[in-house]
Nucleic acid binder design. Structure first.
Length: 440
DNA sequence: GTAGATGATTGTAA
DNA sequence: TTACAATCATCTAC
């Protein structure tokens, strides 16, 4: 047994030439020369190569370089490197496993150094297989090399493809994620705006109404550009409101009860609540309030314009009152002469005479008695007074001194008989009554 | 289309 | 909390 065979046998017990190593028994020395079969010739060839490799370190530098060059050019070099790398991998694992306990095998260390020196192994080469592939690529790339290492390249390509695919997926997901984040930020910004806006209008919750005149849009606050569509009150409702207004011109501030009753008469909901600084549950302000508020202001702004309207309503009210009184008188004369007034005049109780006649006199002092409307109203009033005086009733209620009260509006533009603005309920009116200023 | 009428809204003062 | 005053927005008649 020669040195070469012994060395090869010590290489992790790998049978490079197809012979087994059993019980530490040495392989038979490789036969020199071809012995007729290709397998034997190849074994001999490999044996020669291995012999050269193992003895290369014992030779001079020039001889080693020459042998190295010859080995590099050898057709079996890739296969040899592959085998060597495989050996190294296996032995490397075993060395790492037992490094703590046993000193490294000098033979393996020598192999390691050799591979390092050849540049086919080491930390930068990434392992035996890669080193083998690199070595194969460096050897010139013969057809054998391509066949032998194509699987590595294929795997590498596959890994690269997988990597790029995953990277692409990741970038797509990342891009989508960032887009989603941007969108979320955008939505968040809008949501914040909406939240702020809604907080702003949260207390003054939008007016809503159960009135058939109003649509679902009424549920939206004005800040959403869903300002409730305005619907004019019916003619009948306007007449009822005007009647009340002009019959209470000295104090056109209906009480809550009056408002409710007016709302019922006008078929106007009372569930409407002012949009701001008002609690929804408190049904205090209504369309009626809006109407009276607008009416007061507009009346005050343009008294002359509303005077004719005032006279008309006063006449209407007077006629109604006269009829009511006449009916009451007739009733008294036939049934019970001691009861002067039934108090019913249709829409309301007997209208406030003071306000009624106040309409006949201009609020700025001009007399309307000479006008046609005023004369008409005056004749109605005269009739009424005549009836009342004949029956002996209402001597103090419709006396000449109470027929004309002072101007409705004082110098400050406020209603003289009106209570302070904070008081909605008329001071002289009891609960349940429509009148707010019967004492006038 | 436009002007006036009118109901609703809003800020402010008492 | 209310009324006032200004204003908005819509309706209606022309």
């Amino acid at each position: 047994m020669d040195d070469q065979s012994r060395m090869l046998q010590t290489l992790a017990g790998v049978n490079l030439a197809g012979h087994s190593v059993q019980g530490g028994m040495a392989l038979p020395p490789p036969p020199h020369g071809h012995e007729g079969a290709d397998g034997d010739g190849r074994k001999q060839d490999i044996g020669d190569i291995l012999h050269q490799i193992m003895t290369i370190t014992d030779q001079s530098l020039d001889e080693a370089q020459a042998k190295k060059h010859a080995l590099n050019c050898h057709r079996m070099k890739p296969a040899l490197f592959s085998v060597l790398c495989e050996i190294k991998e296996k032995t490397g694992l075993s060395i790492r496993g037992a490094q703590e306990e046993d000193p490294p095998d000098p033979q393996l260390m020598r192999l390691d150094n050799m591979l390092l020196a050849e540049g086919v192994s080491g930390p930068e080469k990434g392992g035996g297989s890669a080193a083998a592939a690199a070595a194969a690529a460096a050897s010139g790339g013969s057809s054998d090399n391509s066949i032998e290492h194509s699987d590595y390249r294929a795997k590498l390509t596959q890994i690269r493809q997988i990597y790029h695919t995953e990277l692409e997926k990741y970038e797509q997901v990342s891009s989508r994620h960032s887009q989603s984040l941007d969108r979320l930020k955008e939505i968040g910004g809008s949501a914040n705006i909406l939240i702020r806006k809604f907080k702003k209008i949260q207390t003054p919750f939008p007016k809503y109404s159960t009135d058939a005149n109003y649509t679902c849009d009424s549920l939206f606050p004005p800040c959403f550009s869903h300002r409730r569509k305005r619907r004019n009150f019916s003619k009948q409702a306007t007449e009822i409101l005007n009647e009340y207004f002009y019959s209470h011109l000295s104090n056109p501030y209906p009480s809550e009860e009056a408002k409710e009753e007016l709302a019922k008469k006008c078929s106007i909901t009372v569930s409407q609540v002012r949009t701001h600084h008002a609690v929804v549950s408190r049904v205090q302000d209504t369309c009626v309030s809006n109407w009276f508020g607008n009416k007061r202001i507009r009346y005050k702004k343009n008294i002359g314009k509303f005077q004719e309207e005032a006279n008309l309503y006063a006449a209407k009210t007077a006629v109604t009152a006269a009829h009511a009184v006449a009916a009451a008188v007739q009733n008294n004369q036939t049934n019970s002469p001691t009861t002067p007034n039934s108090g019913s005049s249709g829409s309301f109780n007997l209208p406030n005479s003071g306000d009624m006649f106040m309409n006949m006199q201009s609020l700025n002092g001009d007399s309307y008695q000479g006008s046609q409307v005023g004369a008409n109203v005056q004749s109605q009033v005269d009739t009424l007074r005549h009836v009342i005086n004949q029956t002996g009733g209402y001597s103090d209620g419709l006396g000449a001194n109470s027929l004309y009260s002072p101007h409705n509006l004082n110098a400050n533009g406020g209603w003289q008989d009106a209570t302070t603005p904070s008081s909605v309920t008329s001071p002289t009116e009891g609960p349940g009554s429509v009148h707010s200023d019967t004492s006038n």
